[in-house]
C-alpha cells in the first residue's frame, strides 16, 4: 500500500501490473527497469487482461515472477516461436517476447529471423548487454571485440571468435519488421524514450502490420565486473559506438 503524505501528490509509484516479488537481479541491472516500463505501458493502456508475455532462458528467465500478467516460459531461444503459436491462435491479444542476446541472437537466431520475416504481429524486446549473465558472464554473439568474458578471457578475438552480431540492423531490412528501434534504460531521459517506444509498439500491434522490435542496450555489472555506476559509463563509452541508440526503422504510413 502506497503511503500518503500530507500536502503532497503522489507522482510516481510501482505499477500494479508488477507483482510484489523481490527482484532477483543484481544491483544496478537494467533488466528490471525494462520489466517495469513494459508493465507501466500495459497498465496505462489497460490491456492487462489481453496481454500474454513470453519469457526467455537467461537472467530474465523469471520475468513471469515480476510481471502480473499471463506468461509462458519458453525453451532457450524459442520465445519467438512460442509467441507465434500464442499470437496465431489469439490474434486479438497483445503478445510480446522478452529475450537476451544469447537467447535471441545465438541459439534463437533462426526463430527470431523467421518470426520477423513472417511479420508476426508481436513485440520482441531484446536486451543486449554483450554477455551471458545467467550462466556467469560468458561471451555472447554481441560481445565487443577485445571484451573480456569468462570464455574470452584474453578478450574477444575476431579471427577466432567472429564479430559482434548487429542483429537489430540485420532484421530491420526484413519486410516483416514494422518498427525497429534501439534504446537504453540507464538515464532518466533514456528511460522516458524507451517507454515511448514500448507505447508505440503496443499501439502498432493493433494495426496488424508486422513485428515491432525494440533493442535495449543494457549493462551487466556482475558480468562486466564493475560497479553499476561504472558499468553505465562503460556502456556509453564502449557499447553505444557499435550499438548506437535511435530508431532504425519507423513506419512511414500508419494507415
Amino acid at each position: 500500500m502506497t503511503q500518503v503524505i500530507e500536502g503532497m501528490e503522489l507522482v510516481y509509484e510501482k505499477p500494479q501490473t508488477m507483482t510484489d516479488a523481490y527482484l532477483h537481479y543484481c544491483p544496478g541491472c537494467g533488466h528490471s527497469v525494462a520489466h517495469r516500463l513494459l508493465m507501466e505501458v500495459v497498465q496505462e493502456m489497460g490491456i492487462q487482461d489481453r496481454t500474454v508475455g513470453v519469457a526467455p532462458v537467461g537472467c530474465s528467465v523469471f520475468a513471469y515472477n515480476y510481471m502480473n500478467i499471463d506468461m509462458q516460459e519458453a525453451a532457450h531461444g524459442r520465445a519467438c516461436a512460442v509467441a507465434t503459436g500464442v499470437k496465431r491462435v489469439m490474434p486479438d491479444k497483445f503478445i510480446f517476447t522478452y529475450q537476451g542476446d544469447g537467447d535471441l541472437a545465438a541459439i534463437g537466431t533462426a526463430e527470431t529471423v523467421h518470426t520477423i520475416n513472417r511479420g508476426e504481429n508481436i513485440l520482441i524486446v531484446f536486451i543486449n548487454n554483450g554477455v551471458y549473465g545467467m550462466t556467469g558472464g560468458q561471451m555472447a554473439p554481441t560481445t565487443l571485440i577485445g571484451m573480456k568474458t569468462t570464455t574470452s578471457p584474453y578478450g574477444r578475438e575476431q579471427a577466432t571468435m567472429g564479430y559482434p552480431l548487429k542483429i537489430t540492423e540485420m532484421i530491420s531490412v526484413l519486410p516483416g519488421a514494422f518498427y525497429v528501434t534501439r534504446q537504453a534504460v540507464h538515464t532518466a531521459a533514456a528511460v522516458r524514450k524507451t517507454k515511448k517506444a514500448f507505447e508505440k509498439a503496443f499501439e502498432y500491434q493493433k494495426l496488424n502490420r508486422g513485428t515491432c522490435f525494440i533493442e535495449i542496450v543494457s549493462n551487466c555489472p556482475s558480468g562486466w565486473k564493475m560497479t553499476p555506476v561504472e558499468s553505465n559509463e562503460w556502456m556509453e563509452k564502449n557499447m553505444f559506438p557499435l550499438y548506437p541508440l535511435g530508431d532504425i526503422k519507423v513506419p512511414t504510413q500508419l494507415n
Binding site: 509462458q72 519458453a74 525453451a75 516461436a81 496465431r88 491462435v89 526463430e111
Partner: peptide, 10 residues
C-alpha cells in the same frame, strides 16, 4: 524446432 515450440505456445 520452431514448430514444436509454436505448439507449446498455442
Amino acid at each position: 524446432v520452431a514448430s514444436i515450440n509454436m505448439v507449446y505456445g498455442a
